[in-house]
Each structure stands twice: as structure tokens, then as C-alpha cells.
Write a protein that binds this DNA or RNA. Structure first.
Ligand SMILES: [Zn+2]
Ligand SMILES: [Zn+2]
Ligand SMILES: [Zn+2]
Ligand SMILES: [Zn+2]
Lengths: 171, 171
DNA sequence: ACGATTGTTGAAACAGTATAACATTACCCG
DNA sequence: CGGGTAATGTTATACTGTTTCAACAATCGT
């Protein structure tokens, strides 16, 4: 299930990333097939790039990479692909970064919660029902009908905290 | 304490908005005085505009209003004022809208949670410690050190839901 | 097979959001 | 006053995202 094999939401540093990307792609194919959505070459390529990067990636970075392998690429090219992938829940947009990242569980639609490391740009996608439920409950108390939740937490991941501690001892 | 007099986080429709803006301004003055921060005319003006609008406002909308009363205004003019106000917790940025809004409780620094009505653009700033705590707890489990939380919920507020229901009955 | 319909891509221009860099002015303090 | 720091003016530029229309391709009903 968890192709990164960590259980923490963060990708393990030594994981088999080739397999990780292949698994994600297979999952995307399956999801699209089930819905008669067309995962065209362009869309598949953008999805692959996002997974290959394994960290939040900006639209124009994707565009640069697209251009390097295909001349006609322009902003709408990448934004249209992103829109498609977003619609089908295959990727998420991180609003606080204006960046995009592959979804770790595209099977069931969900509003992810994200932990974003400011040091190494790694991202953990949580799916904590408690958090989502608490937000829903509070909104419901106020008569507010929730359509979408954006929950993004920035800070420092465990690895980077350790590294920082070690540097601290050296100094 | 709650100058809008609602207790729901949303501003009441009939509230004394002149007083509401004046209260916010007084609070901002107090906060800045306490910290020896200079709430200059420009910064005060931007803060006032945000409170006067009482809904998420974009930087370039503020800029347009500034220009109408002051020739030299340019993008940096407004962004610098916004930066100052953000630093001192007098306003918040809504990442999912690229818009800014006055903070309802600038005394204590906090990471607000926002309910954003897609119909009427009204915003409720919550300060639910349960939500924040649950996010912190989950992050802590993963060894993640939280610096900042972005929690924005879009949907439909109670007033707009009612209005929609009534339109539904008419049809 | 055929045309109508729909979805996808190509291409150019444009709109909106934000910052960099440097010159100038206003404020504070000794 | 002089000298330093904070704030603003000014210009230019980078980054993010949309609109528009034309061309093309897959799909579907006949
Ligand atoms: Zn991987
Ligand atoms: Zn990290
Ligand atoms: Zn008001
Ligand atoms: Zn509303």
C-alpha cells in the first residue's frame, strides 16, 4: 500500500524510487481507466515529473522540463495538465507554496493535510480523519457547509531537526 | 472583546461597522505602541482599508485604492505595508485566495483558522485550540517541528445556505 | 463509412501576484 | 546639528495563472 515504506508520511531516504514512481503511475492509470478519463501522454508526463521530483514543484519548473523535450509547450499546456490531475485527485496543490505534488492515495478522494519541511522541501501527506472531523464539526456548529479544506503545516522534519542538532553540537 | 458581536466568527450583518473599524484601529495602535513598532500613515491606511472592506482583499485592489488618494503608490508600497502588518499579526494572508484580511485578535499571536464563504466572500476567523492542538499532536508523533499552520476551509456560510434554500423553494 | 459532437492540444497575448535593486526622504538619537 | 536607521519612491522584472481562438483527434450515433 505505502510504496515509500515509511508509515510516517515522509518518503524514506533509501527507498526504491524507481518502483515508487512506477507504482504511482500504475495507480493513476487504474484510477483513470475506472473513470474513462484520458491520461494522455502529456498528462502522464506531468504526473511522472511530479512523482520523480518527490517534492513540491512549481508550474513553471514543470514547463521548463516539458519544453526541453517538446517544443510547443506553453503555460496553458502545463496548467491544463495540472487541472486535469487535480480534478481527478491524482495530485494536490500546496496553496502556501504555489506548488504541486503527487497524491499518495488517489483511490479515495480526500482533502489531505500536509507537513512541509522548510529545510529539505520534503512533504508528508497525512490523512488524519480526526483533524478533518474536528474542522467539520466546528464548521457545522456555525452552520457553515464545507466544500474544501486546505491544511498545510510548515516546519522542520525529523531528519532535518537531527541534522541541525548535530551541527549545533559541532559548533 | 468581539466587536462584531456575533460569537460565530462571522461579522453580523447589521453590526455598527464604523465602530468595528475604529475598534480594530485602536487595537492595532495599542499593539504597535507596546512593541515600539511604527504604524505609519501608509500602514494604518492599508490596515483601515482591509477592515473597511471586511472581506478578503487583494493586494492590487488595495493598490488601486491607495493610488486614488496618493500618486506615488506602486506595488512595493502596498506589499511593504502588508509585510509589516503580517509580521505584527495585525492581518492574515489567505493563501488559497492570495488575499489579505484583518485579524480579529491581534493581541496574542496565533495561527488562525478560516472559514471562507464562496458565495458572499465573508470570512470567519476561528481560533479553535482543539484543531490546532490536534495538528500539533499529529506532527509531533512524526517528529515534525511545527512553525506555522495554514488552515483554510471554503464552502457556504449559514446566511448564503438559507438564501439558496429559499431560491430553491421559489423555483 | 459519414458527419456531428466533444475533448485535447498549439499558439499568442494578456492579467494578476510579488520581488529586486537602488535612489531618496523622514525619523530618531546623541 | 550630524550621522545612522527605518521608511518610502521609482523603475524594472520575475513569477503565477487565464483568455482566446484555431487546429486536431477521438468518440458516437446513424
Ligand atoms: Zn519515491
Ligand atoms: Zn526536512
Ligand atoms: Zn465590521
Ligand atoms: Zn456567505
Amino acid at each position: 500500500m505505502d510504496s515509500t515504506g515509511t508509515g510516517t508520511g515522509f518518503a524514506a531516504r533509501g527507498h526504491d524510487h524507481g518502483q515508487c514512481v512506477a507504482d504511482a503511475l500504475a495507480m493513476a492509470e487504474a484510477v483513470c481507466a475506472r473513470r474513462n478519463a484520458r491520461l494522455t501522454r502529456l498528462r502522464r508526463r506531468v504526473f511522472e515529473m511530479l512523482w520523480a521530483a518527490h517534492k513540491p514543484t512549481r508550474a513553471y519548473d514543470l514547463l521548463d522540463r516539458l519544453r526541453s523535450e517538446h517544443d510547443g509547450a506553453a503555460p496553458p499546456t502545463v496548467y491544463r495538465a495540472l487541472d486535469f490531475l487535480l480534478e481527478h485527485g491524482l495530485i494536490h496543490k500546496l496553496e502556501s507554496l504555489n506548488a504541486y505534488i503527487g497524491c499518495v492515495q488517489p483511490d479515495a478522494p480526500h482533502r489531505g493535510q500536509f507537513l512541509i519541511c522548510e529545510d529539505c522541501q520534503s512533504v508528508a501527506e497525512l490523512d488524519d480523519p480526526d483533524i478533518a472531523r474536528r474542522v467539520l464539526a466546528k464548521a457545522h456548529d456555525l452552520g457553515f457547509a464545507v466544500r474544501h479544506q486546505t491544511i498545510e503545516v510548515s516546519g522542520t522534519c525529523a531528519d532535518c531537526s537531527e541534522a541541525r542538532d548535530e551541527r549545533g553540537r559541532d559548533a
